[in-house]
Computed example of a mutant assay.
Amino acid sequence: MKIIKIASVIILGCLVSCKAQEKQLTTTSKTYAEIAVKEGGKWEGRKYIGGTFKNVQKLKLAPEHTDHSFDIRYEGPGWESNKIGYRLYLDWRNAIDIFGKKTEAIVLPQVGQDGFDSYHEMSDWGADILKAGKGIGIGSIDRYLNNERLHFYEVDATVATVKNTTDKSIVKVDYTGWKTVSDKINFTSELTIKPDQRYTQHTIQASKAIEGICTGIVKQKNTELLKKVSSNKKWAYIATYGTQSLVPDKLGMAIFYETNTIENFVDAEFDHLLIFKPTTSKISFYFLGAWEQEKNGIQSQEEFVTYLNGKLEQLNAKNKL
């Protein structure tokens, strides 16, 4: 009996320690990434009924999963710094959305817990502030051919993993058998966020060099398109600024890219798109949002441009952020 009691105390101690470590991660860290899936319920067609959310390190999409299936908290993986948060629609849309934060605390563990769409309403921590609509969101991936974005309608398997360390948080998504037109490829997307930064570094790689792989910024009304190339011509940015958040209030969005990786810029119906040159090599670029209500947030287009130009100078000098 004494041995059993000792074992029970050890197990209980481990559970308490694990919970304490998780709590410490979300209360002391400046970055965080997560993905939460429901368990204990059941599929009824394309909807998941019942169940409770459980955070996991790795998730393979269920074959039934599509947009608004209710099986993944806030529809996909999320990642944040102490400045801003993002989420990826882990379905055919494959768009990236922005969580505007009014606090520098880690907030994602509480987002979407009290109602599937509650994060669209302004709260003490902030809210979902970007309407992606039919657009690409900010910094996500699609394929653009013949004046059409082709989306991720046909994928054999999609696996998302998350990782948190002391100096960064990472979301990685592996798409196996992504079919568009007559091409079927494997594709990897890795999203990394660091402390005290708004930007996400997005590193992508295709198994086959195909035309039309793209990223971009969703078009919104009341915005101005901004562009600039670095002094050494190796880096550039596209950006928008204006009253384009869902609040509505001021929001800036930008993508920094290596000029030699881009084949074309397209002013599409719903998006400002950057079309990558066909390659099987890894490509890295950076995207960011800057919301006026964040702590010590950027308050004007002039401030936003100054901030972007500073990042561009850093890329010009060091070739990385």
Rank of each mutant, 00 (worst) to 15 (best):
V56R: 00
T31H: 00
K54W: 08
T52D: 15
T26N: 05
T52I: 15
E22S: 10
K23G: 08
T26M: 06
Y32A: 08
I6S: 02
G41A: 03
K23F: 13
V9A: 11
K54H: 10
L25C: 01
I10F: 04
I49P: 06
G51H: 07
K38F: 04
L15M: 13
Y32W: 01
A20W: 14
G40Q: 00
V56L: 04
S17K: 08
E39F: 12
Q24S: 13
S8G: 13
V37H: 00
K23P: 11
I35W: 09
I10T: 01
K19A: 14
G51N: 02
G41V: 05
N55Q: 15
A20N: 12
I6P: 08
I3D: 11
C18A: 14
I11M: 06
I35V: 02
I3M: 13
T27I: 01
I10K: 03
V9F: 12
A20C: 11
I6R: 02
F53L: 01
K38A: 01
I4L: 15
S29Q: 11
I35S: 01
E22W: 08
T28I: 01
K54P: 04
T27M: 03
T28Y: 12
I35Y: 06
V9R: 08
L12Q: 05
K30Y: 08
F53T: 02
S8R: 09
I35D: 01
F53H: 00
N55E: 10
I35R: 03
N55M: 12
I6Y: 07
A7M: 14
S17D: 10
Y48M: 12
K19I: 15
V16G: 02
A20T: 15
Q24D: 11
T26R: 05
I6L: 10
E44V: 03
Q57E: 15
I3A: 13
E34T: 00
T28H: 07
G13A: 00
Q24H: 12
K47F: 08
E34L: 06
K30S: 05
V56G: 03
K38C: 05
A7D: 14
G41W: 07
A7W: 10
G40I: 02
K30E: 10
K19P: 15
C18S: 14
V37I: 05
A7V: 12
I49L: 14
I4W: 13
V9D: 02
R46C: 08
Q21M: 15
G51W: 04
E34H: 04
T27V: 07
S8V: 12
V16W: 00
L59M: 01
G45W: 14
T52K: 07
W43T: 02
I11K: 06
E39T: 10
K30L: 04
I49N: 11
T26L: 04
G41I: 03
Y32D: 03
T27K: 02
K58T: 11
K54Y: 01
Y48D: 06
I10E: 01
G45F: 07
T27P: 03
